Computed example of a mutant assay.
Amino acid sequence: CLPFICSVSELLEKHGLQKPVSFVKDTKDNAEEARKLMIRLTRHTGRKLVFKEGLEIKGEMTIFTESLLCSSSIDNIHLAGQMMHCSIWSVDQPVSSKGKPQYKVSYGRSIELVLAASREYFNSSTSLTDSCMDLARCCLQLIVDCPNAIQEELDLIRALGYLEEFGVKILPLQVRLCSDRLGLVKDCLSQLPTNYKQSAKLLGLANLLRVAGKLL
């Protein structure tokens, strides 16, 4: 996420908070430092805010939020959640702090950022127990109303657990890219002669992989 780190450094410098790229990189896992920087940035922009700057500031908030989501830090991911509209119901609710405008990333854009970050973590994981998988799950759980795109990613993570239980050894990225996911269910059946008895679990796996209809 080096491009995002550079973007954050440029954003801070633009608003008079000069921090070198090395500082942003070294402190990206420090949630408290990120919170302090965000408070300073919000106060600084708030003092000079006019209507025509609204879209620009929203764009900068998006960049900052994206960098937090991609920081490989659970604390920073949670902090990013405070800067986003995390459910469709929150979109039209006014957000203010001491009577001053305070921007959050829109619901639709928040979903895009969360999906991009979670997929990057998922794809780089070597297994279900990889620490990156925890980061992927953490990102997805920020969107509290869980629309279909988010649910599909969560189900894909759950499917890895089923595959592991059946003894199918496969990388998470291979599962995502697999064009024949029904074949993965068949692989589970072939691991042991008695696996056919676990029909409920096999059907559950098929549901998670979105291929249950092909079993009928």
Rank of each mutant, 00 (worst) to 15 (best):
F4V: 07
K214F: 09
K104D: 07
V168K: 03
I150T: 01
L182H: 05
Q151D: 11
L163D: 04
T45V: 15
G59D: 00
R43G: 10
A31P: 00
C1H: 13
M133S: 05
Y196F: 15
R109D: 04
L17R: 05
L171Y: 00
L215V: 09
T42G: 05
L203F: 13
D26M: 12
L163H: 03
K28C: 07
V211Q: 01
V95N: 12
K201G: 06
A80P: 00
Q174L: 09
H78Y: 13
L17G: 06
A200E: 15
L115R: 01
K19P: 04
I77F: 07
S118Y: 00
L160F: 02
T129L: 09
L163P: 08
I88E: 14
F122L: 08
Y121Q: 01
P147T: 01
Y107F: 06
G161Y: 03
A117L: 00
L215F: 06
Y121M: 00
L37K: 04
A212E: 14
L55F: 13
V95I: 13
E13D: 13
L177M: 14
K201L: 12
R137I: 01
E153V: 05
L12S: 03
A136Y: 02
E66F: 07
E152R: 13
E152D: 14
L128R: 08
H85N: 11
N123F: 00
N30Q: 10
